[in-house]
Simulated scan of single mutants.
Amino acid sequence: MRVEIWGDIACPWCYVGKARFEQGLAAFAHRDEVEVVYRSFELDPKAPAGVTAPVTEMLAQKYGRTPEEARGMEEHVAGTARAEGLPYEVDGRLHGSTFDIHRLLHLAAARGRQSELLDLAYRANFAGQGSVYEPEGLVALAVAAGLDEAEARATVADPEAYAAEVRADEREAAELGANSVPFFVFDRRYGVSGGQPAALFTQALEQAWAGREPESAGAADAEACEPDGACAVPQG
């Protein structure tokens, strides 16, 4: 069985959702027969390359909040991530184009190191353990994930390398009706949206394996991130 996961490393609920899905997968009896493929979805496809801004500044502008309120929004997400055992730094995080890391993730998929690079990219973005917004940082992450440095460097330097693959993923997401991430597709038959609880992912895997439509497909959406960088946050 194949599970495809659309997400963006700028999406905190994708960070949380990956951890919860992996917990759910670990509890699935046929886990060794599941192929997991990560697909590209840019939250802010219009973000210019090489230009970054503080995440709290972006949130304040987008939601019309004060800097203090924007920081509180970040603290809310950070608390959820930390509850899953994931490191999360509120201060100093940046927002920018993620197109290059998506291209590099496609190289990693071709070399069998996609999950490793994705984990490192999430830690770089959310825990301050590297950089996903500048070339040398991307190359360093690729090497740490086990990729060849020369090949990674050449991929980062060529804006068309794996660009078609990223755009194909994004077209497929639109065709499947995915308007927020994370978005999980089981054997191209069933979809689950948002950073759902681990137990729900186990249930979805079991029911997809059995060939029945999972109840999770009709469950209420969990926290997710929408295009242009919008993420579900507490209002008030």
Rank of each mutant, 00 (worst) to 15 (best):
L25D: 11
A27E: 11
R31F: 12
D32Q: 14
V34T: 10
V34K: 09
V37P: 11
K46H: 12
K46W: 13
P48F: 00
A49F: 08
G50P: 01
T52K: 00
V55A: 04
T56N: 07
E57K: 09
Q61D: 06
R65F: 14
T66H: 00
T66R: 01
E69S: 03
E69A: 01
R71C: 06
P87K: 06
S97L: 01
F99T: 05
H102M: 02
L105H: 02
H106C: 03
A108I: 06
A108G: 01
A109L: 08
R111F: 02
G112N: 12
Q114P: 02
A121V: 09
Y122P: 00
R123A: 07
R123K: 06
A124E: 01
N125A: 13
G130Y: 04
G130S: 05
E136P: 07
G146P: 00
A154C: 08
T155L: 01
D158I: 09
D158W: 09
E160N: 09
A164Q: 08
R167H: 14
D169W: 13
E172W: 15
A174V: 14
A178I: 03
V181H: 04
P182C: 03
F183H: 11
D187M: 10
G194F: 08
A198F: 02
A198L: 00
F201R: 02
Q203R: 00
Q203W: 04
L205C: 00
L205I: 00
Q207P: 01
Q207Y: 00
A208Y: 03
W209Q: 09
A210C: 01
D221L: 15
C225W: 05
A230T: 07
A232E: 11
G236S: 05
